[in-house]
């Protein structure tokens, strides 16, 4: 089937079998920033934003994105022009192996888009689906807090 949606701000039109998972569709299309850690909706490495909300792309069909907007880590920023969240997580030394980080970033973006000044509890809750085995979350939470401050300063 053909699925049309907005991916990282650009209109795309992908033809794939109707039971293709969004995760697989993204990776086949070269958007490998979205990671696969379980395919069981339990690790968070595959988190993307669908219509502005964090969801697991392994627990979603591509077809569900029809007419909607999908944001992935690739749309957030790049090495030369990072998003404040990307920069803040690196500056907080929250990026260890980095495998969980794209998912963490998308969950954090989903949160900050709704709540620009979240409490620590709200950050932990927003990230509760994103398992990280390296950091113990301390620096990830610091990084998200830093980014929120920076983003508030910008607007």
């Amino acid at each position: 089937m053909i699925v049309e949606f907005t991916l990282n701000g650009e209109a795309v039109r992908w033809e794939m079998p109707p039971d293709t998972k969004l995760l697989d569709a993204l990776r086949v299309q070269g958007l490998i920033g979205t990671k696969q850690g379980c395919r069981e909706a339990t690790c968070g490495a595959c988190t993307v934003l669908l219509n502005g909300r964090a969801v697991f792309s392994c627990a979603l069909l591509l077809a569900q994105a029809q007419g909607g907007t999908v944001e992935t880590v690739e749309g957030l920023g790049s090495v030369s022009d990072p998003h404040p969240l990307q920069r803040a997580l690196v500056d907080a030394s929250a990026v260890q192996c980095g495998f969980c980080i794209p998912g963490v970033l998308m969950s954090a973006k989903g949160l900050l888009d709704q709540d620009p000044n979240p409490s620590e509890g709200a950050i932990r809750r927003a990230l509760n689906g994103n398992l990280c085995r390296c950091t113990g979350y301390v620096k990830i939470i610091e990084g998200v807090t830093l980014a929120a401050e920076e983003m508030r300063r910008r607007v």
């Binding site: 909706a41 968070g44 988190t47 669908l50 909300r53 964090a54 969801v55 697991f56 627990a59 979603l60 969950s107 989903g110 809750r125 927003a126 990230l127 509760n128 689906g129």
Partner: peptide, 9 residues
């Protein structure tokens, strides 16, 4: 219920 990304779905 579940986790935040799942609750969103």
């Amino acid at each position: 219920m579940a986790t935040t990304p799942l609750r969103n779905a």
